[in-house]
């Protein structure tokens, strides 16, 4: 009996997989999808958040900690978007490979030019992101930089397959150039939108759009009746091209304001996979930009 128990115990230890594949954990769906595009079948990707989870309201579930425990590489959005759960995962995972400063700790925002960096921050202003707007997955130029950085990291951590990763990046770049041309012909320049949350800001510099109002008076603070009334009045005069929101965040409020102001509500995917036909980042951007036409 004792031998059996001992044997089982040994088995559990030895069963810890010594796989050649890189074990990558991504916090957000777009990160996981991009990593999979570049890593192909040489990496295994675990994505912590589901596409319809609000990235602002996440709890560090034990399953996420366990994923961190097994990871060779953790990839995250950064700019404090994961501040509520990622530090807890990194500490509780008891995995020195993924700690800050290690090659296995990949902060995508290191490759990004953040916009909306506030010059003064206090919480009286709402849930402000002090390091800048973290929702840069709507920005093609930034995503290309992130993809390049990811490729370098994958190639460095798994040098045997470095050429494979670089090839995938080349394919990605070719598709990127082609898509970029397509997107610029959509004629989005000069369109004006009202948004529920400051989620789509990167579309403005990327595609020449403008945001003329927000349903949330301050980030993360729900709108008051007076604010909504003022907004509707402004929108009746100003006639923006649409109200932008996601299906998980502020949909109801946006719809009621849309009805009263006569401005159409445009539901956009918040992340890769959160709507049908947004299976990778290119499809996601296609869906977003086509909806804005």
């Amino acid at each position: 009996m004792r031998k059996i128990i001992l044997g089982l115990f040994l088995l559990l230890f030895l069963a810890t997989p010594a796989l050649a594949e890189l074990n990558v954990v991504a916090t957000l769906p777009w990160i996981g999808s991009l990593a999979q595009t570049l890593g192909g079948d040489k990496i295994t990707v675990t994505t912590l958040l589901k596409p319809n989870h609000d990235p602002h309201l996440v709890e560090a579930k034990p399953s996420m900690i366990l994923a961190g425990r097994k990871a060779d590489l953790i990839m995250y959005n950064g700019l404090d978007l994961e501040i509520g759960y990622l530090p807890l995962i990194l500490e509780s995972a008891r995995n020195p490979r993924i700690l800050p400063g290690q090659p296995g700790n990949f902060d995508c925002s290191r490759f990004v030019q953040a916009i909306d960096k506030p010059t003064a921050v206090d919480r009286g202003l709402g849930d402000v992101h002090p390091l800048g707007n973290p929702h840069y997955h709507f920005s093609p130029s930034n995503i290309k930089q992130v993809a390049a950085g990811m490729t370098d990291t994958l190639a460095a951590m798994d040098s045997a397959n470095a050429d494979y990763y670089r090839q995938n990046f080349k394919a990605f770049s070719t598709k990127f150039a082609q898509k970029e041309k397509e997107w610029q012909t959509l004629g989005l320049q000069g369109k004006r939108f009202v948004a529920y949350h400051k989620l789509f800001e990167y579309l403005a510099p990327g595609f020449g759009l403008a945001f003329v109002g927000y349903i949330e008076p301050k980030p993360g603070i729900p709108p008051s009746a007076a604010h909504v009334e003022g907004l509707i009045k402004g929108m009746r005069d100003n006639k923006p091209n649409g109200i932008l929101t996601t299906n998980y965040y502020g949909k109801k409020e946006s719809e009621s304001i849309g009805e009263k102001s006569g401005v159409k509500v445009i539901l956009l995917p918040g992340d890769v996979g959160s709507m049908a036909g947004t299976d990778d980042w290119f499809a996601f951007m296609d869906t977003v930009l086509t909806a804005l036409k």
Binding site: R110, F111, V112, Q113, S141, Q145, A148, G149, D152, Q189, G190, P205, G208, A210
Partner: peptide, 25 residues
């Protein structure tokens, strides 16, 4: 809009050199 576009163009041009070193560190 024309002014905005040309300014944006300028801004992007101004930013481009900064983006490159960001990839290293």
């Amino acid at each position: 809009q024309q002014t905005i576009n040309s300014l944006q163009q300028e801004l992007t041009e101004m930013k481009t050199p900064e983006v490159q070193p960001a990839r290293q560190s």
